[in-house]
Design a protein around this nucleic acid. Structure first.
Length: 300
DNA sequence: AATCATCCCAACCGCAAGCAC
DNA sequence: AGTGCTTGCGGTTGGGATGAT
């Protein structure tokens, strides 16, 4: 892997941007797009490295940047997402139109963190609702948030199971025999439950949409989680949860066992799937939270 | 008014993933 | 498969703004 060294050059300006530089950058991007950030400064007549230009554009000059204080809703979203995702500022920012990861990160570090004692863990009513007990997860504010929490809950449970069974499953290769993990999910019992739910509703477009999107290349690197027990073919979330309750504790960032706060560190391999879920519109997975049968499925 | 402390945020740095060759 | 380049991300820092003494 290469390392960006663009700022090592001599004669490259650093520090605060001047209005003239801002103007030059905006004008150039308006006319030509940013293209290669590496070559942009030269073409735009800026004595800056491409990295600096990119940062300036993304964090400050982009026309769709939202300025001003964070709203209560935004704040709530940040708190909830941070509870689920940790310091994944870019992912959190993707759920807050007009806000940048840098801005959110700063806001968290300067405002929210100090309001939430115990190093970012939540207290009282601000405690994130993500929990290993799905009976609590529906208390989140917005439907989309509930969907995300439910999905994440299911995923962590699956990861818990996988971690426990990993030593037994070395005989099969997840990546080669099942390159598309969403298809695995689709063919699992949970997927069958989804189909059953949608079947009852007379629909199918949503599910198909889910599959077609999930089959895209972006999801090929998603978590190695399999929701289907390949050995028995009879795994359910219920027994997954039983096993999890008895022996599995997710880890905190410092490696200690997780408390009931549900502050998880997620595996990088799950990013694609998670991001995909976060990008879904409410309606696309709305049937999950509206449906008691889905929760029943989780319960077994 | 001067000095010091703290806050806040724009910008930088290093790392890693993705991609092309 | 190996290498180098580009881009994106998260952590950290520098310095201006503001408040306290």
């Amino acid at each position: 892997m290469g390392k960006a060294l663009c700022c090592d050059k001599q004669g490259v300006r650093r520090g605060a941007w001047t209005p003239e530089e801002d103007e030059a950058l905006v004008e150039y991007i308006k006319m030509n797009g940013h293209g290669s950030w590496r070559t942009l400064p030269m073409h735009a007549g800026l004595l800056r490295c491409g990295k600096s230009c990119r940062l300036r554009w993304i964090n400050y000059l982009r026309p769709d940047i939202k300025r001003g204080p964070f709203t209560t809703e935004e704040e709530s979203t940040i708190i909830q997402l941070h509870g689920m995702l940790g310091n994944r500022w870019a992912t959190i920012a993707s759920q807050l139109p007009g806000r940048t990861d840098n801005e959110i990160k700063n806001y968290w570090n300067t405002q929210l963190k100090k309001r939430l004692p115990n190093s970012g863990h939540f207290v009282g009513s601000q405690q994130p609702s993500f929990s290993t007990d799905h009976s609590t997860i529906v208390k989140t504010e917005s439907p989309s948030m509930r969907h995300m929490v439910q999905w994440e809950n299911a995923r962590v449970e699956a990861e818990a199971r996988l971690s426990m069974e990993s030593s037994l499953l070395n005989s099969w290769s997840t990546s080669e025999s099942h390159p598309d993990h969403f298809l695995q999910l689709w063919h699992s019992e949970v997927g069958q439950s989804f189909r059953a739910i949608k079947g009852k509703e007379g629909g199918g477009g949503v599910c198909q949409s889910l599959v077609s999107q999930a089959s895209s290349s972006k999801l090929e690197s998603c978590s190695d989680v399999s929701l289907q027990d390949k050995n028995t073919g009879s795994s359910t979330f219920a027994n997954m949860k039983q096993e999890q309750d008895s022996s599995y504790k997710p880890k905190l960032e410092d490696g200690t066992a997780e408390s009931e706060l549900g502050y998880y560190e997620f595996l990088d391999s799950s990013d694609s799937a998670l991001n995909h879920m976060l990008d879904m519109h409410d309606g696309e997975i709305g049937f999950l939270c509206e449906s008691d049968s889905f929760l029943n499925t989780l319960d077994g």
